[in-house]
Every structure is written in C-alpha cells, then in structure tokens.
Amino acid sequence: MDTLLIGHAEIERVLTTVGRDALMDRIIERLTKGLTELGQRARELSPARSGFEREHPTRGVLEWMPHYDSGQGITIKTVAYSPENPRLFGLPTILSTLARYDGDTGRLLVLADGNVLTALRTGATSAVASSLLARPESTVVGLIGAGAQAVTQLHALTRTFPVERVLVWDVRKENAAGLAARTAFLGVPITVAPPDVILARADIISTATSTGVGEPPVLPYGDHQEHLHINAIGSDLVGKTELPRRLLREAFICPDHPEQALREGECQQLAGDDAAGGAIGPSLGELCAFTSQAVAHRDRLTVFDSTGFALEDHLALDVLLEIADELGVGSRAELETRPHDAFDPYSISRE
C-alpha cells in the first residue's frame, strides 16, 4: 500500500545504467505506439491543461496536466514554467512532478520527479512528428533557443535522422556557445548562426524559446528549403508565439492537441477563418495512425505545433516505471493515511 517515490538518485541510476540513447529510443517507440493508438481512437485524448499565471516575485505559470485511460491508471503532471529560474536561482526553466493514481480507488501509486522526463518526452515527440513530416535524408538541423530543451530536441533528432550539421541561435550568446559542450556526446558539429541563415539552410528546425507574450517571432520570414520542417515547441501561453503568421499560412500544420494548440500554440495565430478553412491539418495522433497523410507533405513546408499534453507524460512515465522495476530502484513511503475504520478519519490513531 506504500507509494513508490522516484527522485534524483533513481533517475540518475536509470540514465547511467540504461544510457541516454536507449532511454530516448524507448520513449520515442512508446510515444509512437501510444499516439498511433490515439489516432485510431483506441486511447483517450487528454483534457487540455489548466493553471494560473504568476507575476511575483518572478513571472511564470504553474499548470496541471491530467490523463486517464480506463484500465491504464491516472497520471497528473504539475509543471511550472519560470523563465528567470536559471538566472536567479540556478534552476531549470521547467520544473515538474508526475503522480500516478489507481483508476479504481484513486490511491496514489507513484510520485516521480518530471524534470528530465519532460525534456525527454518533448524531444521524443518532435522526433515522432519529424519522422512523419520531414525528409528521411535530412542532415542539417537548426535550433532556435539553446536551453535545456535544445539538448533533448537534438538528441531525439539524431536518433531518427542522419544529422551531420547543427546551426544554433539564442538571444543569450553564452547559451548558444555552450550548447556544443552540452551535446558533445552526440558527436555532431555545432555552429552558431543567425536565424535567417538557419531558416535558409536547415532541413529541420526546432524552436524552443522563452520569448514573451506579444513579442516578435523568433524565426524570420524568408527563404527556406522547400521541404523545411519546423517543430515549434515554445508556445504555451495565450499570446506567446514563435513563428511568423505569414510562414504559418504557407505551411501544412500538425498540432499535437488541437484544442490546446488553438488556444495557446502557434495555431492561435490562425484561429477563426483560417482554422475553418483547413490551414490546420490533422493531429499528430491522426498522422501516426494514417502515415500516408503525412508523407504526402514531405516536399513542402510543414510545422508541428507542439504544446505538450498529458498522454505524452503518461507514456513516458510508463517507460520510467518499467525501467525502475527492471533495475529495482525507487523508495517507498507510507504517504496516505489508512484509518482502521473507513468511516472514521480519527481511527488512524488507536488512542
């Protein structure tokens, strides 16, 4: 009846024992399977996330993301987005915790740190979308934003494509310059380049920035490869977007969670007449289930509008729990009170 706890020590053990590549591969594989089932309507779509904005002492949001499949348990992630964390507190921009509940009783089964897992599943989801919409022979990756997400975006893409060159840009020059050291394990050369050069030369681009609400696009409109695929990762608030509307209007757009993307993703720029007119294409789950719909667009501009939703976290947590069981890691704690009499809350004490 105890709750399984998976924290820093356990996740470090998983990473060092299983290895980054094998862990990423397992999550990519599980997401592909789970999203395909979603597109086939064999799984439920997670509700759109909810939360509140924080203004003081630092700006940011705290959100909760629930997922429930009958017979598969309930996963709820709480996630905080705080762009000032690295500068002010030496903490990641995104902090999260995952909880797994029994679907019949509501009992808390697992409590796990979600920081590494969130970065992994976000990169893995981009790899899934890119494998559908980008040319398989893509060799040049562009990264706009060189924070923590850039590491797992690039890692996942190198597991899926024959990446030979990486172009990176960040408004903080030290972040862009430091990405090569953080991704040295991939053995891929990285060059700092301005956004217009990245747009013109890349086969695949991932944008993962902390741009503010109402700020200009982080990627310009201009010349690009006809087959360019973009993973737009950073839009997660109403009014916060990364791509020029003109670029979106020319693209085939695949949202991960259509309702959520229209509210706070890149798709919010195409709400109303544009959305009704079909500018926004099938969801990622639908493309996974019916891949021919994706393959038909590989020679044109495509955009994956990634806002992140709880099924992805549910599936990634499944992978973590399987590996934790294989390795025998994780501590247990009696977190929930269990009264001797289910009708008497005071009966936890025999006094």
Rank of each mutant, 00 (worst) to 15 (best):
P194A: 02
T209G: 08
W169D: 14
E215R: 14
G178T: 09
V166Q: 03
E164D: 14
A208T: 03
A176I: 02
L186Y: 12
E174I: 14
I198D: 01
T209N: 05
P216M: 04
P220T: 11
I205V: 11
E174G: 04
E164I: 08
L199V: 06
G178Q: 03
L179V: 02
P220H: 06
L167E: 13
R201I: 03
V218P: 08
T207K: 10
A200M: 05
A193R: 15
R172K: 11
F161S: 10
V188H: 10
E164W: 00
L186C: 12
A180M: 00
G212L: 15
A193Y: 10
R182Y: 11
T207I: 03
A156T: 08
A193K: 10
V166C: 04
P217A: 00
L157S: 01
T183C: 12
V171C: 09
I190F: 04
A184K: 13
T160Y: 02
F161G: 11
D170N: 15
I198F: 05
S210F: 10
A200Y: 03
V163F: 07
I205F: 00
A181I: 01
A176C: 04
P162G: 10
E164L: 10
G187E: 09
A176W: 02
V166T: 09
L167T: 11
A177L: 11
I205H: 11
A180D: 13
V168M: 06
V218D: 05
G178H: 00
A156W: 07
T160K: 05
G212S: 15
F185H: 15
A176G: 05
A184S: 15
A202N: 06
I205G: 04
W169C: 13
G212W: 07
R182F: 04
N175C: 14
L157K: 00
T211I: 10
S206D: 02
A193Q: 12
E164P: 08
D170K: 05
A181N: 10
V163Y: 02
I198Y: 05
L219Q: 07
P194M: 03
V171T: 14
A176S: 07
R165W: 01
L157Y: 02
G178W: 06
P217E: 00
A184L: 09
A181G: 12
A156N: 10
A181Y: 01
E215G: 02
A200E: 14
D196L: 12
T211F: 03
G178S: 13
K173S: 15
N175R: 15
T158W: 06
T183M: 02
V166I: 07
T183K: 06
T207C: 12
A156Q: 03
G214T: 07
V192D: 00
N175E: 08
V218T: 13
T209V: 02
P194D: 06
L186V: 11
P216Q: 03
A184G: 01
P217C: 06
G187V: 09
A181S: 14
G212H: 11
L167Q: 10
T183G: 09
T183P: 07
V218N: 09
L199N: 08
V166Y: 04
P194R: 07
G187Q: 07
R201W: 05
P189V: 00
P194W: 02
A200I: 00
G212E: 15
D196E: 15
V171Q: 13
R165L: 03
R182H: 09
T183R: 14
A156M: 05
S210M: 11
R182N: 13
P194H: 05
L179R: 03
E164R: 15
V197N: 04
L157P: 00
R165C: 00
P162E: 12
A193I: 01
A184P: 04
